[in-house]
Simulated scan of single mutants.
Amino acid sequence: MKMSRILSASVIVVCILRPAFGADSAPRQIYKALPPTEIAAAYYDWSGFYAGLNHGWGSSQNSWYLNGTTPEGSHDASGGTLGAQIGHRWQVGRTVFGVEGRANWSDFNGSNNSEWSNAKNQTALSKVGLFTGHLGYAFGEALLYATAGAAVTSTSYKIYSDVTGQQLATADIVRWGLAVGGGIDVKLATNWFLGLEYNHLFLPDNDVNFSNAFGTDRIHQGVDLVTARLNYKFGDPMAAFK
């Protein structure tokens, strides 16, 4: 009777412990960590209208030819420039397209003595206008871009006596040409950005008719502009791009 009780107790213990040992010997399921969630990086959004001011320096290269053939010499008309611009940009991913109009007042002056007479030839460029398209690439809060489009200048050409200094003849000319350049803009604060831009103006040769029987001069003109720009962009300044 005692022996049967011992056997019964042993069977009960085995039945209880067997599932536990079986669970320990079963292959364990391996759980993989979830992939990290991709977080979109935030970049400055260059899309929208903007307006601002610019200030800088420029130089006009001028070569004079009497009656289109006889060289009279060349000179640079250099000085400061101040103006304003307005434009609009569209951003697709990191690529930025834009259009801009700019009007500048300039004080570019220069002269040289004529190589064939006792006269001084002077150039005074007073106004510059640019109508350009922009193509750029955004690096977060910086934008690098190229420009191309139309340019217009207003220039006064004057002839002075090299002996007395008296003005002998004058002519005012408006020229249209091409503008090519590039620049960089960097975010300063919410909706404000600061930039630096360079443009070269390709202007066609013009025949300039002077008063007082001084005849005609063919004048070649090219212009370089370097300006610092401060702009305000209207609208939401931030957007997320991957």
Results as ranks from 00 to 15, higher is better:
Thr164Ile: 11
Asn118Cys: 13
Asn113Met: 04
Trp176Lys: 06
Gln166Lys: 13
Gly165Thr: 06
Ser111Pro: 01
Ala171Asn: 14
Asn112Met: 01
Gly133Phe: 05
Arg175Asn: 02
Ser161Pro: 15
Thr164Asn: 13
Asn113Glu: 06
Thr147Gln: 13
Lys127Ser: 01
Gln122Leu: 05
Ala124His: 10
Trp176Tyr: 07
Leu178Met: 10
Gln167Ile: 12
Lys127Cys: 00
Thr164Met: 12
Ala138Pro: 00
Asp162Ile: 15
Asn118Ala: 15
Ala179His: 09
Ser117Tyr: 10
Gly140Asp: 06
Ala124Thr: 12
Gly149Thr: 14
Ser156Pro: 02
Thr132Asn: 13
Lys120Phe: 04
Ala138His: 01
Thr132Asp: 11
Leu135Val: 11
Asp172Arg: 03
Leu125Gly: 02
Ala146Tyr: 04
Lys158Pro: 09
Lys127Met: 01
Ala142Phe: 01
Thr147Glu: 14
Gly129Leu: 08
Leu168Met: 15
Ile159Val: 15
Glu115Tyr: 06
Gln122Trp: 02
Leu135Asp: 00
Phe139Thr: 10
Ile159Arg: 11
Ala124Gly: 07
Phe139Trp: 13
Leu143Glu: 02
Trp116Ala: 06
Ser111Leu: 01
Ala124Asp: 13
Trp116Asp: 09
Gly133Glu: 04
Asn113Val: 10
Glu141His: 05
Ala119Gly: 13
Leu143Pro: 03
Ala169Leu: 15
Trp176Val: 10
Ala179Tyr: 08
Asp162Leu: 15
Gly136Gln: 02
Thr170Arg: 10
Ser154Tyr: 00
Asn112Ser: 05
Ser126Asn: 09
Ala169Trp: 13
Thr132Leu: 09
Val128Arg: 01
Leu135Met: 08
Ser154Arg: 00
Val128Pro: 02
Leu130Ala: 14
Lys158Asn: 14
His134Tyr: 04
Lys127Pro: 00
Gly129Ile: 07
Val180His: 09
Ser114Asn: 06
Thr147Phe: 12
Ala171Glu: 11
Gly133Trp: 04
Asn118Arg: 14
Leu125Asn: 05
Gly165Pro: 05
Lys158Gln: 14
Tyr160His: 12
Ala169Ile: 15
Ile173Lys: 02
Ile173Asn: 04
Gly149Ser: 12
Asp162Gly: 15
Gly149Glu: 07
Val128Cys: 05
Gly165Met: 06
Tyr160Thr: 09
Ala179Ile: 13
Val128Trp: 04
Tyr137Phe: 14
Ala171Tyr: 11
Tyr145Lys: 10
Asp162Arg: 14
Ala169Asp: 13
Gln122Phe: 05
Leu143Tyr: 05
Gly136Met: 02
Lys127Trp: 02
Val174Ile: 03
Asn121Glu: 07
Asn121Thr: 10
Leu143Gln: 03
Leu130Asp: 12
Ser156Phe: 03
Arg175Ala: 01
Thr123Asp: 02
Gly165Phe: 03
Val163Ile: 15
Ala119Asp: 06
Asn113Tyr: 08
Arg175Ser: 04
Thr123Glu: 02
Leu130Thr: 15
Val180Met: 08
Ala150Asn: 10
Val174Arg: 01
Ala124Ile: 10
Ala142Tyr: 01
Asn113Thr: 12
Ala146Lys: 07
Leu135His: 03
Ser161Ile: 15
Gly133Ala: 10
Thr155Trp: 03
Gly136Cys: 03
Asn121Trp: 05
Gly133Thr: 07
Asn112Ile: 03
